[in-house]
């Protein structure tokens, strides 16, 4: 479960309801570069120095480790643009999401959309989804259980209104 930045705002056309959430991401590109390259330079400088003296077996380990670090930062970067947007505008309910490398969009008719909230109590992995024509789409993956329950109440009222 990621952290959330919650923007509950009125947007789109007049009176439309827009709800956007995204995971918290405090790493700036400059910090990432600074940390990664300073580590890479220190590791490789050490490994290359020892390799120059004939002790070359440090080099592959340095490569593997910096590779793992690069993968970790890359994984974070891939997730940096993740978001979920839910918009109710007139009779249209539009869900849009970006998760890692995947983008998605689904439209429903407000009259057919149903809020499905499977939650015994907060803290027990509540699931919230919007269902229409037999197909459910999960929403609120960046939210806490309490925030999901709150969103469920808001959505029910919006869909009925």
């Amino acid at each position: 479960m990621q952290q959330v930045k919650l923007d509950d705002c009125e947007g789109g056309s007049a009176g439309a309801f827009v709800f956007q959430s995204r995971p918290n991401h405090s790493l700036t590109r400059t910090q990432e570069r600074l940390v990664f390259w300073s580590l890479a330079v220190v590791c490789f400088a050490t490994a290359i120095s020892f390799a120059y003296l004939g002790y070359w077996l440090i080099l592959p380990f340095a490569g593997l480790e910096i590779g793992l670090l690069a993968w970790a930062f890359e994984a974070l970067r891939r997730r940096a643009g993740d978001y979920e947007t839910l918009m109710i505008d007139g009779d249209a309910v539009v869900l849009e999401w970006h998760c890692g490398t995947r983008d998605g969009r689904r439209e429903m008719n407000r009259q057919w959309a149903r809020v499905v909230c499977d939650c015994r109590s907060p803290g027990r992995n509540c699931r919230l989804s919007l269902s229409s024509h037999g197909r459910a789409t999960e929403v609120g993956q960046y939210l806490s259980d309490e925030a999901r329950l709150q969103l469920a109440v808001t959505l029910r009222s919006r869909l009925q209104g």
């Binding site: 998605g104 789409t137 999960e138």
Partner: peptide, 9 residues
Amino acid sequence: MSDAAHAHD
């Protein structure tokens, strides 16, 4: 947000 029909986190 994920499609529950084919994605579960």
